[in-house]
């Protein structure tokens, strides 16, 4: 779900193009836009407080096989939420689980991890190496 929540519509459609068609579905709820009130912690680790809201889109579908798939993802993209819910439902189907994991989830996870690593590497490049008198003398 964390991987699907971070995937763009282009990512999802691209990955789905190389996997078997998702099972037929009926929409039970949504896709609907709404808000999540984001909570922080006082002092970073204390009691909660309401920081502010964020937009989210959620969707629930049921496949012909009876699997119910849910998605709630940041932002306002109904098409994304619908696909994520359909993938969530299909993942519960033994016939689709391994295929989708390999064709959709794993490659997207890899791509997202690479983006995170790149950010981390950029941050690492801005890490300060102090030259103090002591180290210069040594």
């Amino acid at each position: 779900m964390a991987v699907l929540a971070r995937a763009s519509l282009a990512d999802l459609t691209e990955r789905l193009a190389s996997s078997p068609a998702l099972p037929d579905h009926v929409v039970l709820r949504g896709p609907e836009e709404g808000l999540v009130m984001v909570r922080g912690r006082i002092g970073g680790g204390g009691g909660g407080f309401n920081l502010g809201e964020m937009t989210v889109t959620r969707c629930t579908v049921r496949t012909r096989g009876g699997q119910v798939g849910h998605a709630t993802i940041a932002g306002r993209n109904g098409a994304c939420a619908l696909l994520a819910a359909r993938i969530d439902a299909a993942l519960q189907d033994a016939g689709f689980h391994d295929i989708l994991l390999a064709a959709v989830i794993a490659p997207l996870a890899l791509r997202q991890e690479a983006a995170r690593t790149q950010q981390a590497a950029r941050a690492a490049a801005t890490k300060v190496d102090f030259f103090t008198l002591q180290t210069m003398r040594a």
Binding site: E32, G34, V36, M37, V38, R39, T55
Partner: peptide, 13 residues
Amino acid sequence: LPRLAHSLPLDTA
């Protein structure tokens, strides 16, 4: 927009 949920407190650590 309807408020659908509250998040768990963010883990800024």
